[in-house]
Nucleic acid binder design. Structure first.
Lengths: 357, 357
DNA sequence: AGGGGCATGGTAAACGTTTACCTAAATCCC
DNA sequence: GGGATTTAGGTAAACGTTTACCATGCCCCT
């Protein structure tokens, strides 16, 4: 069942069928009607592969994410896909789950699939891999790529802004012992967040204690383990900032299990402002990095390059800001912010929100 | 840069290049080496479209989900993709977000993309759409399709089992007023869960009060609104079962805002056992529907059909069980399970886990 | 030494479209 | 009314692979 069957049945040429389907030239209303009729009767669907092969454009955008399992990404995928649908594009999504092999595979898939552009939201890509992509003169948009490569678009995220706000917020409440649970430190984005934290601390004149900085994995479990680790310390932080919301949720969960009340005994702030954040108990104070905005920026960057029709993409720099969202997981530190050893679950009083400072 | 460039540079024919790349026939070690060298030097990647066009197989499986934004699905997508990678397959994922237009689009994309099979995890697909798919003699695997169609595989989920367990669990703790927050009732799966609930209640001799059953949307907000609605009732349920975990989280969040303690004043049980469930505060008692198992079942069903090589797929029935996972969001009802009007946030005592019954 | 069999690699057709080019008809303008 | 211009639709080449078919050369056996 191909275009020729349709042509035969409608008693026209394949060219006419193609033209009616793609509405690329005027075709007589009579003929068009016959064509559509034949298409419906036959249940004909054009073959995308053949189409792409001859036209040289696949109408597919690739989207490489770290871990679809992290709620930060589905939100992006969703709006990316919705945007794509509007433009009659398709999305080819793959997760790299921080694995070099999977990254290579992802790149290979994109190139072999001859996608028209790719958005890369996984933050630890090797430069050499990137080179393979650039070599094809594909429109590329990165979030936070390290080296500033020519001809690729970039969405630079201003982590520092939101993080500085958070540190100031905490400091304003007289927190002095602030810890940080990082993401996997092989990711540039995780390192950037951690650096911004340290920077902000120094800026404000607070000491950053190395033992208060522990590595997580941007997953729930990582937050949990990190907090366990922190709990073994002699002196403990009264506030904990986390490299993403999942980490913060893991921290809060472990605190709950240890009978440590959030925010009374421990303030925690997340990062990303995923949809979940506002649904945590207590609602999570976090730093927003708008997922819809990010997705829209990325998609439009790609679309723009694709429409430009030049031999090679242009590359543009975009900016995405971050900003503190106050909810109820932070408050003033209690006085006895000393040794709080790992205890069996104990009764913890739940208190009403008090900050909104 | 195509196979001919490689052939020229390696001084062999395109056939030889193809054969080396696909390892489909023995080729002389010397030649093969030359070919690989040429490929590396040129940065050649085969064109998937051309490949698919001539071979008739795209090595792509489609995956249609409801809402990637619901954490139930990313988990499935992840394991589906991992399985696919192992078999050198690709995944084309699309969300329908319960929208008929998007469903039609999804189906169209699958057919036009000439995928080798599709797994459908969106639960409200029209039969007519399904017919389009079946007509192409594509391997198809549904989760919970209503009418039992020939030649399509099905994964039947035994919702009743887990739900009965939950109802019994609640009843054993002397809950008598049990409510249910459904999913969107245009979804078969949502209806099935609700029906199973009512059935179980009757079975055990508990009254199901129509006003205790309120429709949600399988999202966080739906749970929140549903609980608000419930709170306006004169008499209120002491336990609430939810059609999925997101709904349960929404309910708990609203309860928190109203100062109603979970589980002391309200027991809640979820459905799905998403990864998040164990990280809620309190950890959510829920009904497990294994996402990895589901994904594996679906993937293997497709793979099996694809390997069968017959003219039309065969269709197999699979079973997936559900089962209650006890955590800490349920306990005995307090005595005064009467009017509990919507109150301003009040102090709510947090209690240690007590069930594990 | 000659012939059969096998291993290897080349030639070219085919996959299902789009589109450049061409032809024929219709329209327009003076 | 006739040439110029526009419009509609057909013919066939091209896209980049895989693979059926064929040719060649080598080995082995008698």
């Amino acid at each position: 069942m191909d275009i020729r069957d349709v042509a035969r049945r409608a008693r026209v040429s394949t060219a006419t069928v193609s033209r009616t389907v793609n509405q690329v030239a005027t075709v007589d209303a009579q003929l068009a009607k016959r064509v559509w009729k034949a298409i419906a009767e036959l249940g004909y669907y054009p073959n995308r592969q053949a189409r792409a092969l001859v036209s040289g454009r696949s109408r597919v955008f690739g989207l490489i994410v770290s871990e679809i399992t992290n709620p930060f990404f589905p939100e992006i995928v969703q709006t990316f896909e919705t945007l794509a649908v509007e433009q009659n594009y398709e999305i080819l999504t793959t997760s790299t789950i921080h694995d070099p092999t999977r990254m290579e595979l992802a790149v290979r898939r994109m190139i072999e699939g001859r996608v028209d552009g790719v958005a890369i939201l996984t933050f630890g890509m090797e430069d050499e891999l990137l080179e393979h992509l650039r070599f094809r003169n594909l429109p590329l948009v990165f979030v936070d790529v390290g080296p500033k490569a020519p001809r690729v678009s970039n969405i630079r995220v201003d982590y520092a802004h939101g993080i500085r706000q958070a540190v100031q917020h905490l400091a304003a409440m007289r927190h002095e012992h602030i810890g940080f649970v990082t993401g996997p430190l092989k990711l540039r984005s995780a390192v950037a967040r951690k650096d911004a934290f340290e920077e902000s601390m120094r800026e404000i004149g607070l000491e950053v204690k190395p033992e208060f900085i522990v590595e997580g994995d941007h997953r729930l479990e990582g937050g949990k383990f990190a907090f366990q680790k922190l709990c073994k310390l002699r002196e403990q932080p009264t506030a904990l900032m986390c490299s993403n919301d999942m980490t913060a949720i893991g921290v809060m969960r472990q605190a709950f299990e240890f009978g440590i009340a959030v925010p009374q005994e421990l303030s925690v702030v997340g990062f990303d402002d995923t949809r979940l954040a506002d649904f945590m108990i207590p609602p999570l104070t976090t730093i927003q990095m708008s997922q819809t905005e990010l997705a829209t920026l990325a998609f439009n960057a790609l679309l723009k390059e694709v429409k430009r029709e030049g031999p090679a993409p242009n590359g543009t720099e975009y900016k995405l800001n971050t900003q503190l969202i106050l909810r109820n997981s932070t408050t003033f530190p209690t006085n006895n912010n000393q040794v709080k050893s790992r205890v069996a679950p104990k009764r913890a009083a739940q208190a009403p929100p008090e900050d909104k400072a």
